[in-house]
């Protein structure tokens, strides 16, 4: 479904990704794990069009994404829920959701989708008039996910959704990701929380220093001696 082939990405003269290749299959949950600074967020930013790879290609359903602007990428149903949520703090929950549905197709179904999001997150309905910046971290994460859903995603990419949340809320966020997946949306998770994400995913890639070093099913990787030592502390 989404195929990243040999991308090199730079910030100015600094190379961050080196020949990164991976594939996301339809309807699966794929996880990209790695330590801080491994290039996980950079990978997502490149897919969503914020950064352009200097080498390599990104294909989605047979269409090249790597030369498209971010609004074209989101219009194709490739939705990025950014790290640290990045809500519009002075806008209400409802306005934040509306901002998720700017593409012509999503706009047509705006209020239908909004009802669905409110059904998924009843909390958001209660708080729909509240300024997003005044909510708790967990609620903000729900709002950010809801805003992503408003774009009618075919694939949803979560950047560190567990960041700064309590263990119970982390559990809840992962449950939501699974639920979204069951609704037919392909899910790609980028996480430092290796143990929990490997347990819930179909397949995973391990990113180190801007390179893909390992790939496999979640179970296989959990048994891998390198993963055990470097990420699980066993």
């Amino acid at each position: 479904m989404l195929k990243v082939s040999g991308i090199d990405v730079f910030y100015g003269d600094l190379q961050v990704l080196w020949d990164v290749s991976f594939e996301v299959r339809e309807k699966e949950i794929l996880v990209l794990v790695g330590a801080n600074g491994a290039g996980k967020s950079t990978t997502l930013k490149t897919i969503s069009g914020l950064l352009t790879p200097r080498k390599g290609t990104i294909e989605f359903d047979g269409v090249r994404l790597d030369q498209l602007s971010p609004d074209r990428v989101i219009g194709r149903g490739v939705v990025h829920v950014p790290e640290a949520r990045r809500l519009f703090p002075e806008m209400s929950v409802e306005e934040n959701l509306i901002m998720g549905s700017l593409s012509p197709e999503a706009k047509k179904k705006r209020y239908e989708t909004m009802d669905w999001v409110y059904e998924l997150f009843p909390r958001m309905k209660e708080r729909r008039k509240q300024a997003a910046g005044t909510m708790s971290g967990g609620e903000q994460q729900m709002c950010a996910i809801g805003r992503g859903l408003m774009a009618l995603p075919k694939i949803m990419m979560f950047d560190e959704p567990s960041l700064g949340l309590s263990p119970i809320l982390v559990q809840e966020v992962f449950e939501i990701a699974k639920r979204i997946n069951r609704e037919g949306v392909t899910v790609m998770l980028v996480e430092q929380n290796v143990r929990q994400t490997l347990a819930m995913c179909d397949r995973a890639y391990v990113l180190e220093n801007g390179r893909v070093v390992l790939e496999g099913t979640g179970k296989n990787l959990m048994d891998d001696p390198h993963v055990k030592e470097a990420y699980l502390g066993i």
Binding site: L50, S69, D71, P82, R86, L87, F88, E90, M99, L102
Partner: peptide, 16 residues
Amino acid sequence: RATAQDKDAATLMGVN
């Protein structure tokens, strides 16, 4: 308004 509040997030939402 979204661009004023968070330019990068606005870009991600498809705002040019």
